[in-house]
Design a protein around this nucleic acid. Structure first.
Length: 341
DNA sequence: GGTAGACCTGGACGC
DNA sequence: GCGTCCAGGTCTACC
């Protein structure tokens, strides 16, 4: 009999607001049903793909989770852990109050949580698939990664491929079938490094043959204990991330916010557009980026959240609340590049 | 340290 | 339908 269970949430938690708070909610294998207000996500649980349907009656009420398979106690615990990570349930009202004290603009709406992936690995790969492409290509890459390499649940839906699967994938497959282009070798390298980290430092099996030359960055290493340790400085985290293949300053800063470190801004062309159109900054792209950086510096450890919700509010002013965006229509054009047209 | 050009894909556009 | 141009962040070579 399929499992169903509940997950307690902070009193201010609002599923539709807090899930639909970052573009990743539009990327496979995530799916938000606008009409039913149900979040569907397939996870790897009990060594197989299980599709979960998550809903909430009202703000602060527990999440109702319905699985399409029977889960063991360990499977339910793992599902709870992964969903909690995605929805940042560890960030309670007191935690968000610190942000709202620094930037009161979001106090009334309660904005503060920024959706992420169930694992750091998926966050890293999703970040790589968002670099040097337009948003529709990112959507395609994630969908194909799931369809080509992800496990399928009994509902016919796919999970995101884990590090083991991507570490042993062929670069040719990633390029030709998942349409990741030159990112093929970098994704495989990242998967191997992550797998090594998960296994406590043991090297992954060498099976993939990259179609392009792998990165020549010096001695990249993923140390999960260091990345998750609050005592590690932001500078050290940033330095270790930019040493990874396919990760530059933008990607590193983005992964940092996904880790819950909000002091740095992932500056990209969106930042420049935002700086010019909303903040009124003038000058070259580099100059505008520096001005955007300086503009949000007073928000200190919460800089990214102030920056992000300001941009998100701009997107919503153009196309309505994010929880009304359909993945295949509005969701394909939510970046400022499209919305400003 | 700063900069130019290559890396890929998909969409827009002109013919 | 085809060819060309462009957007997008990272990486390497070069100055």
């Amino acid at each position: 009999m399929p499992s169903s269970f509940t997950i307690p949430v902070p009193s201010d938690f609002d599923l539709k607001r807090d899930l639909c708070s970052y573009g990743y909610f539009l990327l496979a294998p995530n799916h938000w049903d606008v009409r039913r207000q149900v979040f569907t996500r397939t996870l790897l649980l009990d060594d197989r793909a299980v599709t979960l349907r998550v809903s909430q009656k009202s703000t602060g009420s527990p999440l109702k989770v319905a699985a399409d398979a029977t889960l063991s106690r360990m499977g339910r615990d793992e599902a709870t852990r992964q969903i909690s990570r995605m929805l940042r349930l560890d960030e309670d009202a007191a935690h968000l109050a610190a942000f709202h004290a620094v930037d009161p603009r979001w106090g009334e709406s309660g904005r503060g949580r920024i959706m992420r992936s169930p694992t750091l690995f998926e966050d890293i790969i999703k970040t790589v698939t968002s670099c040097n492409v337009t948003w529709p290509s990112t959507i395609v890459m994630n969908r194909r990664l799931c369809e080509v390499l992800g496990k399928q649940s009994s509902s016919g839906l796919f999970a995101f491929p884990d590090a083991k699967k991507l570490a042993s994938a062929r670069a040719q497959t990633l390029r030709a079938r998942c349409r990741v282009g030159y990112r093929d070798a970098r994704i495989i390298e990242l998967a191997k490094l992550y797998l090594k980290a998960e296994r406590g430092g043991r090297p992954a099996r060498q099976t993939a043959k990259p179609t392009t030359k792998p990165s020549t960055k010096a001695a990249p290493l993923i140390d999960l204990a260091v990345l998750n340790d609050l005592a590690t400085s932001d500078d050290m985290i940033f330095k270790s991330l930019v040493a990874l293949p396919g990760i530059g300053p933008y990607a590193a800063a983005n992964i940092m916010q996904l880790l819950g470190r909000y002091a740095r801004l992932p500056l990209d062309t969106e930042s420049v557009r935002h700086g010019r159109t909303l903040l009124g900054f003038k000058g070259s792209s580099a100059q505008v980026m520096r001005k955007v950086q300086a503009h949000f510096k007073p928000f200190g450890d919460h800089a990214f959240r102030s920056y992000w919700f300001e941009m998100w509010a701009f997107y919503e002013s153009k196309h309505g609340p994010a929880w009304t965006w359909e993945r295949d229509s509005t969701g394909k054009m939510f970046t400022a590049a499209q919305l400003s047209q």
